Amino acid sequence: MKNQIYFTSVQLGRHILTNRIVLPPLTRQRAAQPGDIPTDLMAEYYRQRASAGFMVAEGAQIEPRGQGYAWTPGIYSEGQIAGWRKITQAVHDAGGVIFAQLWHVGRVSHSALQPNGDAPIAPSAIAPQRVKAFIETGSGVGHLVSPPTPRALTVPEVKELVQLYARAAHNAIGAGFDGVEIHSANGYLVNQFISAHANRREDEYGGSLENRLRFLREIVSAVSAAVGPERLGVRFTPLFESTDQDRVYIGLVEEDPHTTYIEAIRLLEGAGVAYLSIAEADWDNAPDLPLSFRQAVRQAYSGRIIYAGKYTVERGARLLEAGLADLVAFGRAFIANPDLPARIANGWPLNTLRPELLYGGGAEGFTDYPTFHQTCDVEPSETA
């Protein structure tokens, strides 16, 4: 077997994972309308990829205001819960372990996606830059739009949102998920509270780093109480710099990202959550995370650490061998290769991704990627 380090077992929360290859949360925008309901087609997509040691389903908005892109699934209605239950059953029948990602986009939305056409909500009334929401303009068609200036949340509304996260976590377990991941990355709502660029509040949720981390701390506490810390993970995007300012995740590069995120990670350590997921910049020529930061993460956190961000098999193996990561996530490669663990184990070539089919649509570019055995006579352009 090639790449043996990926195929050693590891414990994550209640589960013994058979390999260290992760399917990360990947937005695909194929929920059924009306109602943003997970579908049978989505169940087939996840079933195909259940050989991953660990899976996190695409982000699911915890309430209607949490949506920033048309056709993404929710996890707040009975219909959505029933749809997800088909997905988790398919994954479990195939021997997989799957968590739900709890998502709220905050200000990265548009009035067309909000109940009653209201303004999106955020920690402060500051419009995001260099980011677009996606709205439906007709059946199966839509376009990117600039988010408007959001409305700042009141303190009681912030506390209500904390409980909505806990309710969504409860819904996820009811839908058969093995646990939940709090989406605290990519410039969305929790990240907006953490960031001094998006959070200019002067109350208990703003100002000092301790206050800016309060929303995350309260969500972690509430979700842990609802489902147990061993069923909980948190995802961050700790950006340190950018060589391409137009590609920065909504501009949220903190003045001192090392201190900001190590403090956030210490919060997770104190709460005893099962894992930490770090999503790195994934565009071409993006800056790498400093080694000193990776080492500080490992020193601060004793749970399982997942890294994602355009990883090659070789680059991921180096992190595993150094003890800086416990699992490695492969996004684009897993989309195009439903049997990715087998390809990594055998050094088989990879299918080529069709990026024009990533978002929206049906089976094409979603469930029609062949396994190696289905296409071993085809000459792919990449190798594992």
Rank of each mutant, 00 (worst) to 15 (best):
A100V: 05
A100R: 07
Q101P: 07
L102F: 14
W103D: 00
H104V: 08
R107P: 02
R107W: 08
S109P: 05
H110T: 08
A112N: 10
A112E: 10
L113P: 01
Q114W: 10
N116Q: 13
G117S: 13
G117K: 13
P120R: 08
P120D: 06
I121R: 04
P123S: 12
S124Y: 05
A125P: 06
A125E: 06
I126V: 15
I126D: 02
P128W: 12
Q129M: 07
R130L: 03
R130I: 06
R130D: 15
V131A: 07
A133P: 03
A133S: 15
A133I: 00
A133W: 02
A133F: 03
F134K: 03
E136K: 12
T137G: 04
G138Q: 07
G138K: 05
S139K: 14
G140K: 04
G140R: 03
G142H: 09
H143F: 11
H143E: 14
L144D: 15
V145Q: 01
P148Y: 08
T149W: 00
P150E: 07
P150V: 12
L153I: 00
T154Y: 13
T154I: 03
T154M: 09
V155A: 15
V155C: 06
V155D: 12
V155G: 07
P156E: 10
P156I: 02
E157S: 13
E157C: 12
V158T: 13
Q163D: 14
Q163V: 07
Q163H: 14
L164P: 02
L164G: 02
Y165R: 03
R167L: 07
A168S: 15
A168L: 03
A169P: 10
N171G: 12
G174E: 13
G174I: 07
A175N: 09
A175C: 07
A175D: 02
A175F: 11
A175W: 11
A175T: 07
F177I: 03
V180G: 01
S184R: 03
N186P: 04
G187L: 05
Y188G: 02
V190E: 01
V190D: 00
Q192K: 10
Q192T: 09
S195F: 14
H197N: 11
A198R: 06
N199Y: 12
N199E: 05
R201S: 08
R201W: 09
